[in-house]
Design a protein around this nucleic acid. Structure first.
Lengths: 162, 162
DNA sequence: GTCCCTATACTCGGATAGCAAGTGTCCGAGTATAGGCGG
DNA sequence: CCGCCTATACTCGGACACTTGCTATCCGAGTATAGGGAC
């Protein structure tokens, strides 16, 4: 089981985008530069965020990406699901309906108990991510990030959003 | 994010192995036949269960696999972890230490907050799986499985364990 | 009849190909901007 | 001096190669069994 690297990138990008002034936007190239990752590949994941309605894109010069909702209304699950998809990690192939103890398909009305157990675990995972908003994450960040880093980031913002 | 098919197979196999009389064992070939899956590939996952200490193997004729502990002491997480590994699904690559706002590496003492949040979610997933034992699953199963299927399975057991 | 020995056949275990999905990259379509031109 | 038009350059979006890890398979090492022979 492995999550795409894009999930990490998307979470960091959304955190940065939360500091973009209302009305402005940040291009994919600037975001990639800020995080030191390949531009083209990051763009791919930003498109996924755009399709999911987490961020919105504006074309042309002075264009780029910005959050489409206030950070209070964006959960970490929204971001993860946008990149990773909403399909369950555990997929039941109904092997109980095969082999010497199998019955005709119509006999299996109730869902497989093993599948239910695995889905409960995934639900717990989703619930934990849904309980955390982007705003909450940023609130934690304030005070946890070294002041010098905040200063450098602010300077970079000044230059890029100019 | 996708779990290996082997996880589903392993869970079903352990459920079946719980019904093997103490002292006996069930070969990989019989387990594969019971579930209608490729023998060689299932064997690979049974080896993983064996390495993890969930099942134990006995070689030679009348050999095979059996649970190495009573079902009360085997959690669903034990089985999933044996097949899938214990590495976290979310891997932090420390992109916060790159780009124009980065500081020298020694400045980053505290763990990345985004990573902490993702790890909390995975912990919730693990906790849910750890709270369920194989014995509990089997208790649920009793009464949920159609009587005709139980009968066919019992007949097959008679023939195989003979 | 009982014990021992040997050959057998069955088991697991790790090493080996094939394939799908994630990783990484590129170029084309669309648009807001900025400059120039005319009134 | 002001408004309009056009050319520009910058943005996103989807289509195209490559690599890693999951899927599937095979053959060899080891062992408990079963049968036969000797006592």
């Amino acid at each position: 089981m492995k999550l795409s690297d894009g999930v990490e990138w998307a979470l960091h990008c959304c955190t940065v985008l939360a500091f973009v002034p209302r009305g402005s936007a940040l291009p994919a190239g600037r975001l990639a530069e800020f995080h030191g990752v390949p531009t083209a590949y990051l763009a791919k994941h930003l498109q996924a965020l755009s399709r999911a309605g987490v961020v919105e894109s504006v074309a042309g010069p002075r264009g780029g990406y910005r959050l489409s909702r206030p950070p209070e209304e964006i959960t970490l699950y929204d971001i993860v699901a946008a990149v990773e998809g909403t399909a369950p990690a555990f997929r039941c192939t109904e092997i109980r309906q095969r082999g010497p103890a199998a019955l005709p398909a119509r006999e299996y009305k109730a869902a497989c108990l093993i599948t239910q157990a695995m889905h409960r675990a995934e639900a717990a995972w989703r619930a934990e991510l849904q309980s955390q908003t982007l705003a909450g994450l940023i609130a934690e960040l304030t005070g946890a990030i070294p002041p010098r880093s905040v200063e450098k980031a602010a300077r970079w913002f000044q230059e890029v959003l100019r």
